[in-house]
């Protein structure tokens, strides 16, 4: 497995080739667990070295072999978000399998998504809901993932996508509302 092969696979994924992600995953896989625990440890706090340490091995390799076009950077962020999401679900399933009762501390998925508890089944529901949104509106889901899972600020997301910050905020807010409704159902009509 050489870096160029990795790049080829990444590019195949970018082009949307069937099975590309499946081929890429085995190489990403060893990093997944560490990534998930680092992400959860980070919680709402700033990015730390521990977090970057787990993303760097693969990501740095991919990044250094990509031409730095906006296009490839945008795809890269979406991939990163994807990997982070998979790692979270995977991590949760493993923890779940080992757990023998006991109370688990609430872990907000992101400080702006405090209502999603990444240490409960809510995470799985969230994952399913996001998959549904991807099916319905890929662009919206990618925007949401870049913003919250890859951890970009609204400004960074705007820069990557070429949208205005206001548009990013508005569209991401809609995605949040949509996901909230999927997870929590519709509350009784406003009184």
């Amino acid at each position: 497995m050489t870096t160029p092969e990795l790049t080829v696979m990444f590019n195949a994924w970018v082009r949307g080739e069937a099975g590309a992600l499946d081929r890429l995953l085995p190489y990403i896989y060893p990093d997944l667990r560490a990534l998930a625990s680092a992400y959860l440890r980070r919680g709402a706090r700033p990015v730390t070295l521990q977090t970057t340490a787990v993303v760097n091995e693969l990501f740095v390799k991919l990044l250094t072999t990509q031409p730095k076009t906006l296009e490839s950077r945008r795809h890269f962020y979406v991939l990163a978000a994807r990997v982070i999401r998979m790692s979270l679900v995977d991590h949760y399933r493993q923890v779940q399998a080992q757990r023998r009762g006991g109370h688990q501390e609430r872990v907000p998925l992101h400080d702006e998504l405090a209502w999603v508890d990444a240490s409960s089944d809510e995470l799985l529901e969230f994952d399913r809901a996001l998959a549904e949104l991807e099916h319905l509106d890929r662009e919206q889901a990618d925007l949401f993932s870049t913003r919250y899972l890859a951890g970009c600020t609204a400004e960074e997301t705007a820069e990557l996508t070429g949208l205005s910050k206001a548009t990013v905020d508005r569209r991401v807010r809609l995605a949040r509302g949509w996901l909230f409704r999927r997870l929590r159902g519709v509350a009784t009509a406003a009184s």
Binding site: N56, F59, V60, R73
Partner: peptide, 10 residues
Amino acid sequence: SLVAIAERAA
């Protein structure tokens, strides 16, 4: 952001 920092690391 996390990934932006990874970019810098690269």
